[in-house]
Structure formats: structure tokens, C-alpha cells
Computed example of a mutant assay.
Amino acid sequence: MTCRKQSSPTSLLRVVCIDGALVLDNEKSLPGRGAWVHQSCLATAISRGAFKYALKLTEQPNELDAKDMKLK
């Protein structure tokens, strides 16, 4: 989303907005529009507020810190 480089879905994180909050979709199966982002680009996307536009939201979502959205 931030660097706009194409990658395979297995190397990208999927983020969705549920009840106004950004959620990391580890299983890549949550309903709704998802935004795909490289893990290295996640902090930049959050700081730019890019998820509002990528997810076509009318309001800025309650964003989590990039450190809270790490893969485990």
C-alpha cells in the first residue's frame, strides 16, 4: 500500500477495519475490504493515515501502533 510494490499474498499483511478499529487479519479470511501491506511498510502506512483511503472509510479508524500489529 505504501511502496506499491507487488508481492505474493503470503508475504503481505492484510488489515481490515472492524467496528472502527484496525485489525490484523492473520488468517486472511475476515470479511470486508482489506488492505494489503508489507510488514516493513506498516509503520509508514499508519503514520500517513493511509488505511482510511485504502479501506474507503469516511472517518479515520482507531489505529493501533505498528508495534501492536506484529506477526507472532
Rank of each mutant, 00 (worst) to 15 (best):
K5A: 15
S47Y: 01
K70N: 13
S40R: 14
K52T: 05
L71M: 14
G32D: 02
Q39W: 02
Q6L: 13
M69Y: 01
K56C: 04
L12C: 13
A35K: 01
G34A: 07
D65L: 08
P31T: 08
H38Y: 04
V23A: 07
A45M: 04
E27V: 02
L12Q: 13
P9T: 13
E27F: 01
A45N: 04
W36T: 01
M1E: 05
D65F: 08
L24S: 08
K52Q: 14
M69Q: 05
A21C: 11
V37R: 04
A50W: 00
I18M: 11
A43D: 15
G49W: 03
D25E: 06
A35N: 02
L12A: 13
W36Q: 04
A54E: 11
Q6F: 10
K72C: 09
Q39E: 15
K28Q: 10
K5E: 15
L55H: 02
Y53S: 14
S40P: 01
E59F: 01
R4Y: 00
A21M: 10
A35L: 05
S29H: 09
Q39M: 11
G32A: 03
S40Q: 14
V23P: 08
K52C: 05
R33W: 00
Q60F: 00
S29F: 00
K67L: 05
A66N: 06
M1A: 09
H38F: 05
D68H: 07
T44W: 02
G20P: 12
A43G: 12
V15P: 11
G20R: 12
M1I: 06
T44E: 15
K56L: 07
A50M: 12
G20A: 10
G34L: 01
Y53N: 14
V15R: 08
W36H: 03
V16Q: 12
E27Q: 13
V23Q: 13
T2P: 00
V37F: 07
L24H: 09
L12Y: 08
L57C: 06
E27T: 10
G49I: 04
K67F: 05
V15C: 10
E63P: 03
R14W: 08
L71S: 14
S8N: 15
S40I: 10
T44N: 14
K72T: 12
L13M: 15
S11N: 14
K70C: 10
E63I: 07
